[in-house]
Amino acid sequence: MGFKLLSKLLVYLTASIMAIASPLAFSVDSSGEYPTVSEIPVGEVRLYQIADGVWSHIATQSFDGAVYPSNGLIVRDGDELLLIDTAWGAKNTAALLAEIEKQIGLPVTRAVSTHFHDDRVGGVDVLRAAGVATYASPSTRRLAEVEGNEIPTHSLEGLSSSGDAVRFGPVELFYPGAAHSTDNLIVYVPSASVLYGGCAIYELSRTSAGNVADADLAEWPTSIERIQQHYPEAQFVIPGHGLPGGLDLLKHTTNVVKAHTNRSVVE
């Protein structure tokens, strides 16, 4: 069995187990497998329904001669939608809004960016022009300005110390501490036991640490421990890039980060 097929099978099995364990909360999309990078042309966006009122959005972007996937989250909030992270750029984010209108038909009224990198804030200006209120932590807003990236308009308070959590509509926002970046936030959907790890969490097929220019490698494993301790009931975990899975993604990420750190020390 090929690795790609095995990865998709694991996603399907995880979703099936969740649907059985929580039949009222989960209505997993039966329309197909989780979209992969090879299936999404740059400039297009796919939506994948995880649970009743919960979707991931998947886009792709060219970077350094390669094409990478990027995940975000959409959560229903009454007759409105909360968006977590842009679709990595203005063109993708405009396509995301169009796809949401086509498939869901509810307005996106608020959006949260989970850290300051372009795959999370690139497209904020498109959201703002569409009347979406954009939010991020003060740290993310400051770092985005320093980096020359787009800056969300509103500040999220109460997320300055490791372990801080605040309720934001249908989700809980959690600051686990520094990891992929010093400002990275985690998003949890309690009604569906869905954990969105953003770039602080890796997919299972990833074996290298990737972009760690703004990471705190020493603190990252401790931050992941905080996530595990705060959300032990999480059933569906979405990484910032690639295929979702279960809580095993947290341990896998820790292993990859520690291996990278150990290699760096040896070198």
Rank of each mutant, 00 (worst) to 15 (best):
residue 187 V to S: 03
residue 202 Y to S: 06
residue 32 G to L: 10
residue 27 S to Q: 15
residue 110 R to V: 09
residue 147 E to R: 13
residue 250 L to N: 02
residue 132 V to R: 01
residue 258 K to N: 13
residue 220 W to A: 03
residue 8 K to A: 14
residue 203 E to G: 08
residue 215 A to W: 05
residue 239 P to D: 01
residue 194 V to D: 01
residue 148 G to N: 10
residue 140 T to Y: 05
residue 114 T to S: 06
residue 89 G to I: 00
residue 118 D to N: 08
residue 169 G to M: 02
residue 51 A to I: 06
residue 136 A to L: 03
residue 105 G to P: 06
residue 131 G to C: 05
residue 228 Q to R: 11
residue 13 L to C: 14
residue 6 L to H: 08
residue 63 F to K: 07
residue 3 F to V: 13
residue 34 Y to M: 11
residue 241 H to T: 03
residue 76 R to A: 10
residue 223 S to K: 01
residue 18 M to E: 15
residue 31 S to F: 10
residue 76 R to K: 07
residue 227 I to L: 07
residue 118 D to V: 09
residue 152 P to I: 04
residue 201 I to K: 01
residue 17 I to T: 12
residue 145 E to P: 06
residue 19 A to K: 15
residue 65 G to C: 04
residue 216 D to G: 06
residue 5 L to Y: 15
residue 201 I to R: 03
residue 205 S to P: 08
residue 209 A to M: 09
residue 141 R to M: 13
residue 198 G to R: 04
residue 54 V to T: 06
residue 129 A to I: 07
residue 193 S to H: 13
residue 208 S to C: 06
residue 266 V to R: 13
residue 243 L to N: 15
residue 154 H to W: 12
residue 211 N to S: 12
residue 196 Y to N: 04
residue 155 S to N: 14
residue 196 Y to V: 02
residue 261 T to K: 13
residue 124 V to L: 09
residue 105 G to D: 08
residue 125 D to T: 09
residue 118 D to I: 08
residue 201 I to T: 06
residue 86 T to R: 01
residue 149 N to M: 15
residue 136 A to R: 04
residue 128 R to F: 09
residue 249 L to N: 03
residue 202 Y to V: 15
residue 225 E to K: 12
residue 135 Y to E: 00
residue 104 I to L: 07
residue 177 G to V: 04
residue 80 E to I: 06
residue 1 M to H: 05
residue 168 F to T: 01
residue 219 E to G: 08
residue 115 H to F: 00
residue 46 R to S: 08
residue 255 N to Q: 10
residue 229 Q to F: 12
residue 155 S to G: 12
residue 189 V to T: 01
residue 104 I to Y: 00
residue 186 I to H: 03
residue 241 H to V: 01
residue 59 A to D: 05
residue 54 V to N: 02
residue 36 T to E: 14
residue 136 A to C: 06
residue 9 L to N: 15
residue 155 S to K: 11
residue 126 V to Q: 07
residue 110 R to F: 02
residue 37 V to F: 15
residue 214 D to T: 07
residue 146 V to N: 13
residue 265 V to S: 12
residue 192 A to M: 08
residue 238 I to M: 07
residue 150 E to V: 04
residue 115 H to C: 00
residue 167 R to M: 12
residue 22 S to G: 11
residue 262 N to A: 12
residue 244 P to R: 03
residue 104 I to D: 00
residue 58 I to K: 05
residue 207 T to S: 12
residue 73 L to P: 05
residue 263 R to Y: 11
residue 114 T to C: 00
residue 146 V to R: 14
residue 114 T to A: 02
residue 239 P to S: 03
residue 11 V to K: 07
residue 76 R to Q: 11
residue 32 G to K: 10
residue 21 A to Q: 14
residue 238 I to P: 03
residue 38 S to A: 11
residue 238 I to R: 02
residue 225 E to S: 12
residue 181 S to Y: 05
residue 213 A to D: 10
residue 12 Y to H: 10
residue 209 A to G: 07
